[in-house]
Amino acid sequence: MIHVQGLTKRYGNITAANDLTFSVEAGDAFGFIGPNGAGKTTTIRMLAALLKPDEGTATINGYDVLQEPEGVRASVGYMPDFFGVYEDMKVWEYLDFFAAAYRVAWRRRPALIRDVLELTDLSAKRDTYVDALSRGMKQRLCLAKTIIHDPDLLLLDEPASGLDPRARIEIRELLQQLCSMGKTILISSHILPELGDLCNKIGIIEQGKLLMVGAVEDIWQQLEGGTQLVIVVHDRQQEASDFLAARPDIADVELEENALHAVYRGDPDAQSAVLTALVESGFRVTSFAERETDLESLYMRLTRGIVS
């Protein structure tokens, strides 16, 4: 769906995007994470054919961003981080305008607007003026506008910034629904929990550089060199710790309170062998689990020291 090769954008001496290379497959939900000013917006705008890259290529749905911006625009729904709304305009007129701007035939528009309003839960606000909507509703309306021409790919730049927790959850549920409808989503954020449940792939960007790309679990594994295990034994914790440390497929055993944190480096399918060995040696194991891949700690590890 998206193939990016060596994409670079400079503003004077500042390199906003530096040699980015990644790809997103159809149906993926790709999270673009980085602190403010890392180059997320620049990258998304280049993908939406709104900003000319200095170097590199990007193709979206088979269309080259530089050569065929029309094709890119037809297949992309772009939601900017800072969007304005028109005064003196009703909700349905706003959507009708954008549908017309995307060359949706007028016969199809009323039904389309009804569907999109229903999806974004704004049906009751059809005849309200746009500038009378709350911020969360405006954000949902902008999302409705983004999907009005039924694009395959959604480029969403910080869709939940500045929203209260409730509105944020509503947006997230909406995005999950869109994901299940088969849309490919590229979403940027500096708020991590927002992406955790939604994305199956992430890219971490800082100072214009892509630090890491891949599935959340893969990145975690890459960082740790293995799977994080959390093992709780009823007693003889120190003994269990020594036992684990002696095994060749286990590295870095740490004892924190009652739980043992260990990194498993062996064959993922043979992970249960560790449990078997523990039980056979007479340790009373009450819990044996993989640690949940937590995006926040992943992010903190990756960006450690670079920001400060």
């Binding site: 625009r73 304005g84 701007a101």
Partner: peptide
């Protein structure tokens, strides 16, 4: 000024 130009340019107009 109203930040709507970018959205306009993103369309097929």
């Amino acid at each position: 000024e109203k930040h709507t130009l970018e959205m306009l340019r993103g369309t097929l107009l």
